[in-house]
Design a binder for these strands. Sequence first.
DNA 1: GGCAGGATAGTGTATATACACATGTGCATA
DNA 2: TATGCACATGTGTATATACACTATCCTGCC
Lengths: 146, 146
Amino acid sequence: MSRSGKPRCTCFLLRRLTRKVTQAYDQALAPAGLTITQYSLLAHLHRMPGLSASALAAHLGMDRTTLLRTLKPVADAGWTRSGDGARGRSANLALSRSGTAKLRQARPLWERAQAAIESAIGSRRVAALQALVDESLAALRGQAHR
Amino acid sequence: MSRSGKPRCTCFLLRRLTRKVTQAYDQALAPAGLTITQYSLLAHLHRMPGLSASALAAHLGMDRTTLLRTLKPVADAGWTRSGDGARGRSANLALSRSGTAKLRQARPLWERAQAAIESAIGSRRVAALQALVDESLAALRGQAHR
DNA sequence: GGCAGGATAGTGTATATACACATGTGCATA
DNA sequence: TATGCACATGTGTATATACACTATCCTGCC
């Protein structure tokens, strides 16, 4: 509506909210020495071990090289096991023993962050937001892959 | 399925979508040599000139120091005029002549990106998404400012 | 066996993001 | 005047993000 109302930048709005939400999660996870990106990485490695870097990146909707850089501090901390891998070729990524422990340690913190967001924004709205975000991503993925 | 269906991480979902959307805008703006962050900066400086760095950062929902770093390439390109400023004190930020020109040059590219997103996701959903994102941010801001 | 081509993996560089820390500046009050 | 607090500004460091480019490796074909 308000055809004069100057359309607003969807990207800017999304980025602004994402910044705030990321800060909340990062602060909640700080006691475990993790960021939400790293926590997500550990959680995905736990749920689907054995993927190659490329496959995992695709799943996370992340550039492959971004995943590599993001993985670095996690691997440096010893939380991953670089499968055997066919030498250089697609090393099957998985959690190490200490990675699993770290994930278990951090999970309550993550749950607290989730709860805090739900409480602040409202469960209904969070659910609606998640659904819309899902649909939007699916639409973008269906679109040209240029 | 799965009785508790494992709640999904709102932060991860948001970040994943934001990455994709940002890529789309950045690619659209590339011919002008701008990122969407820089374009947003120029647009806000155009619409509300004279703010201090802190005030602008608050408005953008961005950490003050992040704004400083983000501003650097924009200022280096000569697109800003650092007001007179009371010496060190809150320099009033504004667009330079070439900054205004750059913004005018980039605007059609931004409009194309907006249109592409609307077309891919659907106008209705984009509107709903913007509304939810707005409400969520307002809720988070109303919340504790710790 | 050797080579061409496609897929996979890694690096260089630049921006985006924020926390911790340091610096500076001006006013109010003792 | 001194001084100390409130607020504004700048830097160091670390992660997050992606594009362009490079390197490596496997496989199919000759």
